[in-house]
Nucleic acid binder design. Sequence first.
DNA 1: TAAATGACAAGTG
DNA 2: CCACTTGCCATTT
Length: 106
Amino acid sequence: MEEFTRSVIEIIKQIPKGRVTTYGRISLMAGRSRGARQVSRILHTMSRKYNLPWHRVINIKGTISLPEYGGYYEQKARLLSEGIEFDEKDRVDLKTFLWNPGDIEC
DNA sequence: TAAATGACAAGTG
DNA sequence: CCACTTGCCATTT
């Protein structure tokens, strides 16, 4: 398996419960500035096999990328059960819930 | 081998 | 905020 793929899987496994991160961020952490689409592909194909917290990954707009006919509701339900909130336009506030390794609290 | 595809992102109006 | 465009790149057709 490719190094990039392995890194992506390791990073996703480290996302703590109750936080989210984005495709592009994962790609950056794994060492690629433009691999967001590859991250989405990895999630789509490997999340079950590697038991990944796939629901903690959303897009940069703070919305769920899955279509309503393909997992959207399950992802939202899983996030809600972890305490993540959605606004009236189904967006997550990244300022509040984005995973920050290093944890800069007040 | 070329064209289409996709769980993305950033820019523009 | 929405709609649309451009850049991206591995995988599928």
